[in-house]
Amino acid sequence: MEFKGLKKGLYAVYKGTGGFEDFIGALEAKLNSSGDFFTGAYVAGVYGIELDEIEEDILAQILQERYGIKTKRPLSGKNGPPGMDGSGEMATRFVYSTLRSGQKVSYEGNVVVMGDVNAGAEVEAGGSIVVMGTLRGSVKAGVPDNNDATVSAILLKPTQLRIGSIVVRWPDEERHIEEPEIAYVEQGRMYVRSVYDVK
């Protein structure tokens, strides 16, 4: 059992495979061990288990009465917190400038660059990388081995791109792409497509 803090509130992420009782047990164990850390918190969803209405009632009651945690119904059945791909849940570093040749940003979470990443500049992230400009330099996402990370840019034309364990050299031919693109790894291969095509 884990809690992910997101803008809308907390998400309880259940990692077990048991039923409702096992879920409640894990939840209580987690909350009991956290002291009053979660008191006054707000749970916006439950992820990793399907709950019916009665189970949600019981859960909401337990959270409210025993731990002072509010809930937002329905709790289950929705898509998990955005980016449950292994990078969306990480902390994010914002870089509010263009990265020029010789400049480097390393961060264990995600990196968002509000500018260009020029050739000769480097970005290294444990999670995903988003460039709100042109990506011309070399970037490594998902360092060291998170193949679920992604790299996206308004104009994606890096010298070299690495996601997790996959490294690719960018094709030399000129492409005329008007849409922002995202690069991701699926079954050991890297794919690039328009961000509008990604579900």
Binding site: R100, S101, Q103, G120
Partner: peptide
């Protein structure tokens, strides 16, 4: 141009 980019970064 590459070197100019580096220099602009250092100037900034």
């Amino acid at each position: 141009v590459r070197d100019a980019d580096r220099i602009i970064g250092l100037l900034e």
